[in-house]
Structures are given as structure tokens and as C-alpha cells.
């Protein structure tokens, strides 16, 4: 009969309307279940895959919970344990970058000899295509993908050309964004370090044995390599360094200003990372 097709179709639209209506009558509609309430109508939403009815999200008040692998613009990792940048200025990321939007200046020591540290590192975020090749091929786990996607600015130059300071985040920030990958990576790095240490120890032991055989007189001298310190000594050293840093920060002025600003930034990022980790935990708990 003419018109049955139309009526059937209208039935489908009616079902959609009813689904949403029913959902909305519940005290917590399905689409808000499992989402993190930030107050003031702001939420981080993770929709269940069997969600029926309304699926839309009221951005920017409501945001989606991003999956761990989400990639946007790269960030550089500041190793908070070792208190150093992980990047060694090897340049592999700049070589694999498809649109060639990474610029690296390798640092050099007083004699002009290149060292494994960069003095400048730029990423043109307007050109970056978020491909993640730099991350894939960095041999030092020094560059990772950031999740921060609200980057709009009024001018491309220089705001969207990120320098090292803007790119650098502490390790904890990365650990909060990429928990699974971070765990795997830490395990791998530990193992590698262990192996390296063992090798070095063996080497040192061999060298020591050789040295001992060569001259019995110098038996008291420690073997080649860094002198070993006890855990207590190391802790004391760390404390001393921290005190120095604090004193520097208190003094302020000159170069230290920049350093202090950087530390403040790191602290801020760490705090944000912790918040995020908390969000995640809360979310997965529900």
C-alpha cells in the first residue's frame, strides 16, 4: 500500500525520540553514567558502547575521555628522577618527521665539541600532522604525544612554533596520560639499565682484576669508573642539590629566573597530571 514505507520510517524516528525521552527521565541519563562530574555542568564523558538514545556531547562543557593512545602534538620528556631532559639531540625525530616541522640545535661544550643535549628544539604545531613518527622512532623515549588539544591562538607566529620550554613536560605528566605504555616502557627501561649496569660492572671488575695483577702496590686504589657511593651518601647529595636549587630560586635574578619559572611550570604540570590520574582512577572505578 502506498505510504507504508513512509509510516515505517516514521516509526523509526519515533523510536529514537522515545529512547531519548526515556533516557532523559532517569535521574542520571545513560550518557552521563560513568562520567566524571566537574561541577557547573562540566563533565568528562565516557559513553558506554551500548548507549541508546541521544549520543551528542555538549562541548566545551562536556568533553570526551580520551583514549590513552590519542595523539596530538608531541611533548618532550623531562626525567624527574634524573633531573634532566631525556632528549639527546640525536635528530632521528627530525629526520623521520614527514612535514619536517622539527628543528633541533645540538648543544656543544666550551671547546665546541657537540654534546648529547639540545640547546633548542622547535616544533611548528601548525605544520605538525600528528603522525607520531617522532615518537615511534625516538630511541630514548624522549618524545611522546600530548593529549592537550585546545591550542587555538590568534597568531601563528610565534605562538604555534613551540620551543623547548613549551614542549617539555615532567615524566609524571606523561605517566598520567599514557599509563599502560608508561608501565611497559619503565619495565623495559629498567631491564635495559640493569643489563647495562651489569655489563659495566663486569667490565669494571675485569679492569680491576687486570689492574690488580699489574701492580699489587696500587691495590688500595678504586677501579676505573665513578666511585661507588652508599645509599645514605646519595641521599645526602640529593638533599644538598635540592637545597642549592631552593637557594637559587630564592635568590632569583638572571639565569636562575628562567630555571625557577621552568620548575614552577613543571610543578604545575605535575599537579595537573596528578589531577588527571585521579580522574582516570575515579572513572575506571565506576
Amino acid at each position: 500500500m502506498f505510504g507504508t514505507g513512509l509510516l515505517k520510517g516514521l516509526g523509526v524516528t519515533l523510536k529514537h525520540a522515545l529512547d531519548t525521552f526515556e533516557d532523559d527521565r532517569e535521574s542520571v541519563p545513560d550518557r552521563y553514567k560513568g562520567s566524571l562530574e566537574l561541577g557547573n555542568n562540566r563533565r568528562v564523558i565516557q559513553q558506554p558502547i551500548d548507549q541508546e538514545g541521544l549520543l551528542t556531547i555538549q562541548y566545551p562543557e562536556e568533553k570526551r575521555l580520551l583514549p590513552e593512545r590519542f595523539r596530538y602534538i608531541p611533548m618532550l620528556i623531562w626525567d624527574s628522577e634524573k633531573q634532566e631532559d631525556r632528549c639527546t639531540a640525536c635528530g632521528i625525530c627530525a629526520k623521520v618527521c614527514p612535514p619536517q616541522c622539527i628543528w633541533i640545535v645540538r648543544d656543544s661544550d666550551e671547546n665546541g665539541k657537540p654534546v648529547t643535549r639540545c640547546s633548542e628544539f622547535y616544533i611548528d604545531a601548525a605544520v605538525c600532522m600528528s603522525c607520531s613518527f617522532c615518537v615511534e622512532f625516538c630511541p630514548f623515549d624522549a618524545i611522546k604525544m600530548n593529549h592537550d588539544y585546545e591550542l587555538a591562538v590568534y597568531d601563528r607566529y610565534p605562538q604555534l612554533v613551540y620551543d623547548m620550554e613549551e614542549l617539555t613536560v615532567p615524566l609524571e605528566y606523561y605517566a598520567a596520560l599514557w599509563p599502560t605504555q608508561y608501565e611497559e616502557e619503565q619495565a623495559r627501561r629498567k631491564q635495559e639499565e640493569e643489563e647495562k649496569r651489569k655489563q659495566e660492572e663486569e667490565k669494571a671488575a675485569k679492569a680491576a682484576a687486570r689492574a690488580a695483577a699489574k701492580s699489587a702496590a696500587a691495590a688500595e686504589k678504586p677501579a676505573a669508573g665513578a666511585p661507588k657511593r652508599s645509599a645514605a651518601e646519595l641521599q645526602a647529595l640529593a638533599k644538598e642539590r635540592a637545597a642549592q636549587r631552593q637557594a637559587q630560586a630564592a635568590e632569583g635574578g638572571g639565569d636562575d629566573d628562567a630555571a625557577a619559572a621552568k620548575r614552577a611550570r613543571m610543578e604545575d604540570l605535575k599537579r595537573r597530571a596528578q589531577e588527571r590520574a585521579r580522574q582516570r582512577k575515579q572513572d575506571s572505578g565506576q
Binding site: 639531540a89 635528530g91 627530525a94 629526520k95 618527521c97 619536517q100 628543528w103 645540538r106 628544539f121 622547535y122
Partner: peptide
């Protein structure tokens, strides 16, 4: 051909404009 030499180790960033 990429990679361009101006990117590393002496990255000379220049605005395209």
C-alpha cells in the same frame, strides 16, 4: 629529498613568510 639538512643538528627555524 627529505630529510632536509636545515633541521638537524643546526636547526635554523625560519618563518615561511
Amino acid at each position: 629529498a627529505k630529510p632536509f639538512r636545515s633541521r638537524h643538528p643546526k636547526g635554523e627555524y625560519a618563518f615561511h613568510e
